[in-house]
């Protein structure tokens, strides 16, 4: 890892990290502020949702809205959170390696005694730091809003809320892992983006399809997204340690592969 490169890369990516982080935090706070209203009218809402097919309710985690934990998991962590973090992970991973190779700026990063492995590790660190900052803003925003706006009887335990965010972080630790692996594999920025974005979308679609059509539930086993079930974490139905270990292991494997690939390949610089 090269401190000077890390510093400059954080500086270059700081705006984007902060906008993703702030946007998602504001969204959590907004959704949280809606909860008391929804909670007061829960009967009417449940009447309304009864007309939906069960599978659809399951897909979006709308089975129960009773507690804040279930509500925020369904309305945010099961949906917008995945979009925001997915876009950030893919985009940033491509920018950190493939874009620099494609445009030729990598020649400068590799003109000093800093080795290829060190450059790759630095870029990976920037990606992970970005994810941590965004998740932290999510957690802090959601937690603060929850404390201030939600009645104690409905509030989610801090521990559960932390788990939702923590497993969410590890999910994108893994998504960022394969994205940056693609980023180090391709010479062409667009190809890398298509590969990483395509795989991410495919994973998301497989998970969705498996949730909606019960006959196709096996499809979910092919998707990394099935490991992240915030509503179940809120209810305490998930073995968080096991899921965390799997996601962390997958991510770590991808990052190691990224460094190995980047060390050995020919660069068109």
């Amino acid at each position: 890892m090269s401190p000077s490169l890390y510093k400059q890369m954080m500086k270059s990516n700081f705006k984007s990290i902060m906008s993703f982080g702030m946007a998602s935090a504001v969204y959590v706070i907004l959704m949280t502020s809606l909860f008391p209203m929804i909670s007061d009218n829960i009967d009417k809402i449940q009447e309304l949702t009864e007309i939906y097919p069960d599978s659809l309710m399951k897909a979006f985690g709308l089975e129960s809205f009773g507690t804040y934990g279930e509500f925020i998991s369904a309305e945010y962590y099961g949906l917008f959170f995945l979009f925001i973090l997915g876009i950030f992970s893919v985009m940033t991973a491509i920018q950190l390696i493939a874009k620099l190779v494609d445009r030729g700026s990598m020649a400068y990063l590799l003109s000093t005694k800093v080795s290829r492995a060190q450059v790759a590790i630095t870029q990976i660190s920037v990606l992970i730091t970005g994810l941590i900052i965004i998740i932290f803003l999510n957690f802090a925003g959601g937690y603060a809003a929850g404390e201030l706006l939600i009645d104690d009887q409905y509030a989610i335990a801090m521990g559960d809320f932390f788990q939702i965010n923590f497993v969410g972080f590890l999910l994108f630790f893994a998504v960022g892992g394969y994205s940056i692996l693609f980023s180090s594999l391709f010479n062409d920025e667009k190809m890398a983006f298509a590969a990483a974005g395509g795989v991410t979308f495919l994973f998301y679609a497989l998970d969705m399809a498996g949730k909606i059509v019960s006959d196709l539930e096996w499809l979910r086993n092919l998707s990394i997204f099935s490991l992240y079930e915030p509503a179940k974490i809120a209810k305490g139905d998930v073995n968080v340690v096991l899921v965390s270990l799997i996601l962390f292991g997958l991510g770590l494997l991808m990052y190691i592969a990224t460094v190995l690939v980047f060390r050995r390949r020919n660069l068109p610089l």
Binding site: P3, S4, L5, K7, Y108, L109, S111, T112, K113
Partner: peptide, 12 residues
């Protein structure tokens, strides 16, 4: 300047 700072840092 920022670019030169970065490269200088990497050159050590």
């Amino acid at each position: 300047t920022e670019f030169l700072d970065m490269i200088a840092g990497m050159q050590g």
